[in-house]
Design a protein around this nucleic acid. Structure first.
Length: 732
DNA sequence: GCCCTCTTGTTCGAT
DNA sequence: ACAAGAGGGC
């Protein structure tokens, strides 16, 4: 088979350059996945490279699976031996084999964000520092960036010895690491850092992997952080066949340590680097690409490149201003319906927003209109309480040292084991330096426990021991069934028999089917593998592959994806770019890159919307259109009104119907409030809040804001006169 | 030990 | 606007 077929000259060059360091600067939509898959296929088929000698690191597990599939299709052979996955999953794989060499046990747990917070709370309590000053989340953020930069607690403490606050942070960092180890647990950052440590500490292990990985690929290289970069430098050091693919314009993860200098300095670190630029875009129309180019060129920190396309001009990009976020949602939904009449499918649509919280209004309207949709991230399945509970049981059974998981479920369902009892147990456990589970094996040894507490604890210990005994005798799915049964978790929910408990039971069923699915895909997989798999899924991975539904997701999650029709919503100053970035040039450039990523997801049609009023935290905010909109030349954009009237060149008749913001439920009130009759003292009645008196009227850019005092149970409310659902009381 | 009410933070993005 | 956590009363 010819692996060069259908590739352009640059792409071929990238496929053929197999030896030595290679940096592929791949613009958005320039066919980099194609290059990567063909290059891997070429190596195996033409160069006779054994699949087990290839390591490919992708950004999500989904991307890894897709790449695997595509390579398998090209080759028609067995490629299971290729190591393909995210940095974190590769780390787990290496650590499961040899982590005992750096003092952990091989059955380590992986702690997610919530587990980290729980653990940090314990550290703060134990260290007895002011918890109003030392916030778990911000400390964890600091620790995470320190780990990314490979700075140890000791180094940090020594460097900041005279800074009281920082020294405390450093000591909390040290304590946090100590506790992780006691729990035999690693957090996400540890999966990289400990892998690095293992390779540095043990020359045999390093040698093994350096020899094994003759060819290494890294996708989305612009979003690797320092420790990840160090890891691949180490792994590739022997064969030096390292191929990295990235686009500095799409670097959007600085907040979690992504270091753009990795890509900018690659050629310095690897002196004989071959650089190939892929600049032909195969994804978007000329108009869309033009818009993207005009936005990104305002950034100063970037490698010079010019992305071009042979595709059609396509329609102009539509920029639409809406009164508020609900109108925005209706606009998108109405336009989607219109486009469906023209032959588009729901799955062709993506709604991209800056923050997850924005999804709600779109979800509501799509639900109302019956347009199928799915949400990436947001209300996360794996974050639900019942799922976390079951996972905690499984984690504890797999790793008895995992105190965090134990404490989560020791009294779930209720077993009469309360705080007082647990405090005694924990105190004893830490005094003898054992895990909670271990000390529970000999309840008589724990001081001051009441007989009742002992009996309750005994019951719990028996449940867990029982489950540990049967763990290896059955499939994962059956074992989860036993856990749900023996612990009484299901019985408790069934007994409750509320709407909520029924939803929970549904979710649990869903979780069991996840396990079944895992077993089908990984016949050899252990409970350990299953848990690691679940922990390391990205939001994209976790999103159900619902047939033919629109996708709602953040711009961050949209990285690497493409859609025929993109709605880029909430394009307002303070939201996108986000308020925090307004005064910082480098953060602003990151926002601009994010905007560039959003625009370049679109293949055929792009709609950009912004709302004049946006409610955040329940507060009304008046906003201006995003500066990124201002950066687009007028001749590249249009509005619905324009495009439906006198049509410009290349501009399709987008609509026949005029009002795209019409709300189908006509909640939008027809109250004649635009009159001058409302003034301070006027009595009005509101649908929901009842009768109130206007206490203030303020002018606001053509509209008026009124403040009304309602009954004391409601209090003061701020409303916009033009849209307030109020009526003036007669006889006033 | 349990339940109810009040307070608090959330929302920048995520493996 | 809303959920989760804290705190107080029983």
């Amino acid at each position: 088979m010819d692996y060069l077929k259908g590739l352009n000259a640059r792409q071929r060059e990238a496929v053929l350059h197999t030896e030595g360091p290679l940096l592929i600067l791949a613009g958005a939509g320039s066919g980099k996945t194609r290059v990567l898959t063909h290059r891997i296929a070429y190596l195996i088929e033409e160069k006779g490279v054994f699949p087990g000698n290839i390591l490919a690191i992708t950004f999500t597990n989904k991307a890894a699976n897709e790449m695997k599939e595509r390579v398998a299709n090209l080759l028609g052979g067995d490629i299971d031996n290729i190591w393909m996955g995210t940095f974190h999953s590769i780390g787990v794989r290496i650590l499961r084999r040899d982590i005992d060499k750096i003092g952990y046990e091989k059955n380590f747990s992986i702690y997610d964000r919530d587990d980290q917070i729980t653990l940090m709370k314990e550290c703060i309590k134990e260290k007895d520092v002011n918890k109003d000053i030392y916030k778990e989340k911000s400390i964890l953020a600091t620790i995470s960036s320190l780990k990314d930069a490979m700075i140890s607690p000791d180094t940090y403490i020594n460097k900041n010895y005279n800074d009281f606050y920082r020294r405390n942070i450093g000591e909390l960092y040290a304590l946090y690491q100590k506790k992780l180890k006691q729990n035999n647990a690693l957090d996400f950052d540890d999966l990289i850092v400990k892998t690095l440590e293992l390779l540095r500490v043990d020359p045999m292990v390093l040698d093994y992997y350096q020899k094994k990985f003759k060819y290494i690929f890294i996708d989305e290289f612009q979003d690797t952080n320092k420790s990840q970069y160090e890891l691949i430098r180490l792994l590739s050091n022997k064969h030096r066949n390292l191929c990295v693919v990235g686009d500095d314009d799409q670097s959007i993860y600085k907040f979690r340590g992504a270091d753009i200098t990795n890509i900018l300095n690659f050629e310095k670190d690897f002196s004989d680097t071959k650089i190939i630029k892929l600049e032909q875009n195969y994804r978007s129309t000329k108009n869309i690409l033009n818009v993207a180019n005009h936005v990104i060129k305002n950034n100063s920190e970037r490698k010079d490149k010019s992305l071009w396309t042979d595709n059609e001009d396509g329609d102009l990009v539509v920029v639409e201003s809406l009164p508020d976020s609900q109108d925005e949602a209706y606009f998108v939904a109405n336009m989607a319906e219109k486009l469906m009449d023209e032959g588009y499918k729901p799955s062709d649509f993506a709604i991209l927003y800056r923050t997850n919280a924005q999804s709600r209004s779109f979800e509501e309207v799509f639900m109302k209109k019956g347009i199928p949709y799915k949400i990436v991230g947001g209300l996360r399945f794996y974050d639900r309480r019942e799922i976390k509970d079951i996972l905690a049981y499984l984690k504890l059974i797999q790793n008895p040292n995992d105190d965090i998981s134990l404490k989560r479920i020791i009294n779930v369902p209720r077993r009469g084991i309360g705080n007082v009892t647990m405090e005694k147990v924990e105190e004893y456990a830490s005094s003898v330096g054992e895990s909670i589970y271990t000390v529970l094996q000999d309840l008589e040894g724990i001081p001051n426990l009441s007989t009742r507490a002992i009996n309750n604890l005994k019951e719990f210990v028996e449940i867990i021991n029982n489950l540990m005994d049967i763990k290896d005798q059955m499939s994962i799915k059956d074992f989860i069934g036993e856990v749900l049964d023996i612990t009484g978790y299901i019985r408790e929910l069934e007994k409750e028999n509320s709407i909520e408990s029924r939803t929970r039971l549904e979710n649990i069923k869903e979780f069991v089917s996840v396990a079944i699915d895992f077993e089908v895909r990984n016949p050899e997989g252990t409970l350990e593998d299953f848990l690691a798999n679940v922990s390391l899924l990205s939001d994209i991975d976790k999103t159900e592959d619902l047939e033919n539904s629109a996708t709602m997701l953040t711009v961050h999650s949209a990285k690497g994806l493409e859609f025929p029709v993109v709605f880029l919503v909430g394009m307002e100053e303070g939201l996108f770019p986000i308020s925090r970035a307004l005064e910082d040039e480098s953060e602003l450039e990151e926002e601009r890159r994010l905007c560039y990523v959003a625009i370049t997801r679109a293949q055929e049609l792009l709609f950009i919307t912004y709302a004049k009023i946006r409610t955040i935290y329940g507060n009304v905010n008046y906003s201006l259109p995003s500066r990124f909109i201002e950066e687009i030349p007028e001749n590249l954009i249009t509005t619905i009104e324009e495009s439906s009237g006198l049509s410009k060149d290349n501009n399709r008749q987008l609509i026949n119907v005029i009002d795209y913001t019409k709300r189908s439920d006509s909640f939008a009130p027809q109250f004649p409030n635009n009159n001058e009759n409302i003034k301070v003292g006027t009595k009005v009645s509101h649908k929901k809040w009842g009768v109130g008196t206007v206490v203030q009227v303020k002018g606001r850019e053509g509209d008026k804001e009124i403040i009304i005092a309602f009954d004391e149970s409601v209090g003061l409310k701020r409303l916009l006169l033009s849209i307030a659902p109020i009526e003036i009381m007669k006889g006033d």
